[in-house]
Design a protein around this nucleic acid. Structure first.
Length: 282
DNA sequence: TCTTTATGTAAAC
DNA sequence: TTTACCTAAAGAA
């Protein structure tokens, strides 16, 4: 389920299972053979998450040269996923499906299937890419002020802005709909109709929800205390949400409205979510 | 078992 | 604005 929380979760897992090790890097499927051979046999320093992107930083130190770094850049897109399995010498599991990249460490093997992007980048190329990616709410040094400037200075709809990865990175279609419902703002509200305080509340809520996502995996936007923790852990499908993909709103029981913004389906509650700005309340 | 749909983005029109 | 990428889960039959 790749929204930003999944990326942070993977980074955490893979730093634990592969970080600091020299890895055998291959492309069982073949589509990443060239890239894999560049980093094969090198040490994985760290796995860095940024929005919906992951960077596997390899130490490329050559015998006679100063240290250099290269990154395998991965974007999962809609279908991509990593799977981690145990492995031992002489007992490495067969790749399942179309495995673009396989990372083999001391006792774990990580397979990457179905990514949108998987390529090797040097430091400069990563810096260029970084410029296109807005602050990540899950990053400790997240530049909230920059997000405020972009949103409060834009006439575009808040629902569109939240999905624009150059404005704020990591939020996907589920968190967008659910956060806007939770603070009761209509997704069509222009960014510049919000005030500082409301926007801060929105970003705080998104951050809190995504942190829960990093901890548990599947997205849940309903508070644990509504159900009791045991039940909460077992919520499935649209039970986990207020609105997303639901026919009725969990809050008021009314019909959920479905619209489209920037080519993606948005769910909203027309009774509870307020449209702010010109024309509201008239 | 088959068909539809999706948490995303970039390229093509 | 639409299509393509590529995979698996969910829904329909």
């Amino acid at each position: 389920m790749p929204e930003g929380h999944t990326i942070h979760r993977y980074a955490r897992q893979m730093n634990l299972s592969l970080g600091g090790q020299k890895l055998a890097v291959t492309s069982p499927q073949g589509r990443f053979e060239g890239g894999a051979s560049l980093v094969d046999g090198h040490r994985l320093d760290t796995v860095e998450p940024l929005g919906k992107h992951l960077f596997f930083w390899f130490n490329m130190t050559a015998r006679s040269k100063a240290a250099s770094r290269k990154a395998v850049h991965v974007h999962l897109g809609m279908y991509g996923r990593f799977t981690t399995q145990k492995s031992a010498e002489g007992d490495v599991p067969d790749p399942r499906g179309q495995v673009r990249m396989r990372l083999l460490g001391h006792d774990r093997v990580v397979d990457l299937n179905g990514p949108t992007a998987c390529d090797v980048m040097d430091v400069e190329a990563v810096d260029t890419l970084r410029e296109r990616i807005g602050p990540d709410l899950l990053t400790p040094d997240c530049d909230r002020a920059r997000i405020h400037r972009r949103i409060l200075g834009s006439r575009a709809a808040i629902g569109t802005l939240l999905m624009d990865q150059s404005v704020v990175s990591g939020i996907g279609n589920i968190y967008r709909a659910e956060c806007l419902y939770r603070i009761r703002i209509d997704p069509r509200t222009p960014g510049n109709a919000l005030d500082d305080e409301t926007l801060e509340k929105l970003l705080d809520d998104a951050t809190a929800l995504m942190k829960i996502g990093v901890q548990y995996g599947p997205i849940r936007t309903v508070e644990p205390d509504v159900f009791g923790k045991k039940r909460w852990n077992q919520l499935k499908g649209d039970e986990r949400f207020w609105l997303y993909k639901r026919k009725t709103c969990r809050g008021c029981g009314g019909e959920v409205e479905v619209i489209e913004q920037a080519g993606r389906t948005v769910y909203l509650c027309p009774r509870e979510q307020a449209f702010l700005g010109i024309g509201s309340g008239c």
